[in-house]
Deep mutational scan, measured.
Amino acid sequence: PDLGLTQLFADPNLIENLKKNPKTSEMMKDPQLVAKLIGYKQNPQAIGQDLFTDPRLMTIMATLMGVDL
Rank of each mutant, 00 (worst) to 15 (best):
T24Q: 00
L18E: 00
L5R: 05
G66H: 09
D54V: 01
Q49P: 11
N17K: 15
Q49S: 11
M28Q: 00
N21E: 05
L69V: 13
E26L: 08
P12K: 06
D68N: 05
K19F: 06
L3M: 14
L51W: 11
G48K: 14
F9C: 06
T63E: 10
P12M: 06
T6R: 12
L69Q: 13
D68L: 02
P12Q: 07
G48N: 14
D2E: 13
A10W: 10
L14K: 01
T53E: 12
P31C: 05
I47G: 05
L33T: 02
M27L: 13
L33D: 00
L57D: 00
M65P: 04
T59N: 06
Q45W: 07
Q32K: 12
M61V: 15
D54N: 02
Q49R: 12
N21A: 04
L3W: 15
L51I: 13
I38S: 07
M58G: 07
L8K: 06
Q32R: 11
D2N: 12
L18D: 00
P55Y: 08
L51A: 10
M61Q: 02
A62G: 11
D2R: 06
P31K: 09
E16I: 07
M61W: 13
L5N: 06
R56P: 02
M27N: 01
N17F: 15
L33Q: 01
K23Q: 14
R56V: 08
D11C: 04
D54C: 03
L14Y: 07
L64K: 01
Q7I: 12
F9W: 09
I60E: 00
I38V: 11
K19W: 04
E26V: 07
K36T: 07
A46V: 10
P12R: 05
Y40T: 02
P44Q: 06
K19M: 13
D54S: 02
A10M: 13
L5C: 09
Q49I: 13
S25W: 03
L69K: 10
S25L: 07
L64Q: 03
L37R: 00
T24M: 03
M58F: 12
P31Y: 06
L8A: 08
L33A: 01
L51G: 05
L51T: 06
D30V: 01
L8W: 08
L64I: 09
D30M: 01
K19D: 02
Q45C: 09
L33E: 00
K20I: 09
L69D: 15
M61E: 01
